[in-house]
């Protein structure tokens, strides 16, 4: 019986991957293309400077504002405050998730071309990325049902993991820094001009 179950599981796995590869097709992109590097650099900047700084995250999930509103504001305002905070928290997590996915796709497009790629770090990084995306999804559900203040502890742990992924991506980008700088400088010059 175990033999039969194993056989059927293998077949199900094969059929799933055949179906997935039929559904997903992607146009291969050039390694280190300027558009890719600039996109990844921007995603990294958004994460590191805009979305992940500790003071920003702490402020968003801080109970201080909520406690003040609960103390002085009428019931309608309290309700609206909590609803707004929840909406902002969900939108923020979604944004972090999107930027992380952008970085991950950049990493995959680059690493598939590198023969010197370390399999160990590649597997570890894949684990980090997927667990982070899953954590973001769980956080969104938790915020939706239990409010933004019930998940503050988990948010800090998740953001620490996100910061680790950012560091890894920064190292990846570091390998392509000269090209990235040229592209960036070009863009800056155009903006300034």
């Amino acid at each position: 019986m175990i033999g039969l179950i194993i056989s059927l599981l293998v077949v199900v796995g094969l059929v799933v991957f055949l179906a997935l590869s039929a559904r997903r097709g992607s146009a291969p992109t050039a390694v280190g293309s300027a558009q890719d590097i600039v996109g990844a650099r921007e995603a990294l900047d958004h994460l590191q400077k805009g979305l992940l700084p500790a003071e920003f995250v702490e402020r968003m999930y801080d109970r201080g504002d909520a406690e003040y509103v609960m103390k002085v504001a009428p019931r309608e305002v309290q309700k609206q405050f909590i609803a707004e905070r929840k909406r902002i928290a969900i939108a923020w997590i979604e944004r972090v998730r999107e930027e992380i996915r952008g970085l991950w796709h950049f990493h995959l497009r680059e690493s598939r071309h590198h023969e010197a790629m370390s399999i160990r770090s590649e597997i570890a990084l894949a684990f980090d990325f997927y667990s982070l995306l899953l954590a973001c999804r769980i956080l969104q559900v938790a915020v939706r049902f239990r409010g933004p203040y019930s998940v503050a502890g988990v948010v800090h742990t998740t953001m620490a993991a996100a910061a680790r992924v950012c560091q890894a991506s920064e190292r990846s980008l570091g390998m392509l820094t000269p090209a990235a700088q040229i592209a960036h400088e070009g863009d800056d010059a155009r903006v300034a001009g």
């Binding site: 590869s21 097709g25 291969p28 995959l108």
Partner: peptide
């Protein structure tokens, strides 16, 4: 197939 899907390689 899994590696091709993971790295978004078109067949």
């Amino acid at each position: 197939l899994a590696v091709a899907i993971h790295y978004r390689i078109a067949l």
